[in-house]
C-alpha cells in the first residue's frame, strides 16, 4: 500500500467528532422555546437582567475597542439579540449573525421596531454571507466556549476579512487560569466520556486567543481581563482609518 493510499484509507476511516460540530442542529434544538433559548445563550430568562448584562457588555466594548455613533457593527453569534437590542441604538447599523435560525426567530421578535438592525442566518461556520472590508467593529461574546478551537479561529479569520482597514475586532471566553474557567473545565471533566453534551463550555487560554488574532493578521493585539471573569482578545485590521485606542 502506497503512502497516499494509506492516507486516503485513514481519512475515510475517521468518524465525526460528534454533535458539537453540528452547531446549527445543536442550537436550533435549544431555540425551540424562548426561555430555554434565553437560558442557553444568556444564562437567564428575564428581560431586565438581560438588558443589564447587555449594558455591561456595551460598556466593555466601549472600554476595550471603542464605540462610535457612525460604526457599522457585526455581532457573531448574536443568539436572541441580547446585545443588539441596546447596541442598535448606539451605532449607525447593527448586523446580528447566528448559525441558528431558531435563535434568530426569537431575536427578530425582540428587535422589532429597530430599523437599523438586521439579522442574518449563517449557513455554516464562517461569515461567507458578508462582503469584505465592510464593518467598523466585529465582536463575538459568550460564543467561543461553545465552539471547537478550529471554528473559533475560523471566525477570527472571517472577522478580519469583513472588517474595513482600521476596523476593530473583539472576542471573549472564559480563561482556563481563572477560578471560574477552571470550574467550567472540571465540571466538563466529570461528565462520563460518552455523555458530554454537545454545547458543553470549553475555556480558552490567553495565548490561544492572542495567537488566533495575530495569525489572522490583526495588529495591536491585546488580551485583557474583564471584570466578569472573562478575557477578551482585541485587535485592529491594518490599514487606513485606524482609530486611536481608548
Amino acid at each position: 500500500m502506497s503512502a497516499d493510499d494509506a492516507h486516503e484509507r485513514w481519512r475515510n476511516s475517521t468518524g465525526t467528532l460528534g454533535d458539537r460540530s453540528a452547531y446549527k442542529r445543536v442550537w436550533d434544538r435549544q431555540a425551540r422555546d424562548f426561555d430555554v433559548a434565553s437560558l442557553a445563550v444568556a444564562g437567564h430568562t428575564d428581560e431586565p437582567t438581560m438588558d443589564l448584562t447587555a449594558r455591561g457588555f456595551i460598556d466593555t466594548l466601549r472600554a476595550t475597542v471603542g464605540l462610535d455613533r457612525n460604526d457599522v457593527v457585526l455581532e457573531i453569534g448574536c443568539g436572541i439579540g441580547r446585545v443588539g437590542k441596546l447596541l442598535g441604538g448606539e451605532c449607525l447599523q447593527w448586523f446580528g449573525a447566528d448559525i441558528s435560525g431558531g435563535m434568530l426567530g426569537h431575536a427578530a421578535a425582540r428587535l422589532q421596531g429597530l430599523p437599523n438592525t438586521r439579522l442574518v442566518e449563517l449557513s455554516t461556520v464562517g461569515l461567507q454571507e458578508f462582503p469584505e472590508d465592510a464593518f467598523d467593529l466585529v465582536y463575538c461574546t459568550i460564543v467561543f466556549m461553545h465552539l471547537y478551537e478550529w471554528d473559533r479561529y475560523r471566525y477570527v479569520e472571517e472577522a478580519f476579512r469583513v472588517l474595513r482597514p482600521g476596523g476593530r475586532g473583539y472576542f471573549d471566553n472564559y480563561p482556563l487560569d481563572s477560578e471560574h474557567g477552571w470550574n467550567v473545565f472540571t465540571e466538563g471533566a466529570r461528565y462520563p466520556i460518552d455523555r458530554r453534551p454537545a454545547h458543553i463550555s470549553m475555556a480558552s487560554t490567553r495565548e490561544e486567543l492572542g495567537i488566533y488574532l495575530s495569525k489572522a493578521g490583526f495588529e495591536a493585539v491585546r488580551v485583557v481581563d474583564l471584570p466578569n471573569q472573562l478575557i477578551a482578545a482585541t485587535g485592529r485590521k491594518p490599514g487606513q482609518g485606524a482609530r486611536r485606542r481608548p
Binding site: N70, V72, R118, F130, A134, R164
Partner: peptide
C-alpha cells in the same frame, strides 16, 4: 470630517445590505 465619516459608513452599511439581499435572492436555500 465627521460628516464624511458618517457618509462613508452609511455607504458601507448600504453595501452590506445590498450584498445580503443579492446573496439571499441567489441562494438555493
Amino acid at each position: 470630517i465627521d460628516d464624511v465619516k458618517r457618509r462613508e459608513a452609511a455607504f458601507r452599511a448600504k453595501m452590506v445590505n445590498e450584498f445580503l439581499d443579492r446573496g439571499e435572492r441567489n441562494s438555493y436555500l
